[in-house]
Design a protein around this nucleic acid. Structure first.
Length: 120
DNA sequence: GGCGTGACTATAC
DNA sequence: GGTATAGCCACGC
């Protein structure tokens, strides 16, 4: 038997989450894909929930595919995630983050959209 | 071993 | 913007 699903996959997911740069966000699906587990976004959510408030694991940088926080709006976890994101400089508007600006690897567009007036 | 559930996603209307 | 539906997979009962 080789139920190698045990910790190797969980470890891969946690490693990817830990690799998300500060001030950037990613999605469950993207984390799963980068961890070599395409299509297993739900597993990412389960791993993060199981990991809980582990230091060094920036769980707040993982959002749904549309940039919205995965928790129910107004819930304790929801507000905590929004608070931690804003503390990193990530703008959270109505429980949502603009992936065009803060998505992992899409920061270059930020400079374009936020170019000072008269420069474009 | 079936069944419901969930920190998901894509597509369609 | 919203709801509905289907696919996805680990877990607890």
């Amino acid at each position: 038997m080789m139920s190698a699903i045990d910790s190797s996959q969980h470890d891969a997911i946690r490693r990817v989450v830990a690799a998300i740069p500060r001030g950037c966000v990613s999605s469950y699906g993207e984390v799963a894909a980068r961890a070599g587990l395409p299509g297993r976004a739900r597993l990412v959510g389960r791993v993060l929930g199981e990991a809980g408030p582990e230091p060094g694991l920036p769980w707040q940088r993982v959002l749904r595919s549309d940039g919205r926080i995965a928790f129910p709006a107004g819930s304790s976890a929801f507000r905590e995630q929004a608070r931690r994101l804003r503390a990193e400089g990530v703008a959270v508007v109505r429980g949502k983050v603009d992936l065009r600006r803060f998505g992992w690897g899409r920061g270059d567009l930020d400079a374009l959209l936020w170019a000072p007036p008269g420069d474009r």
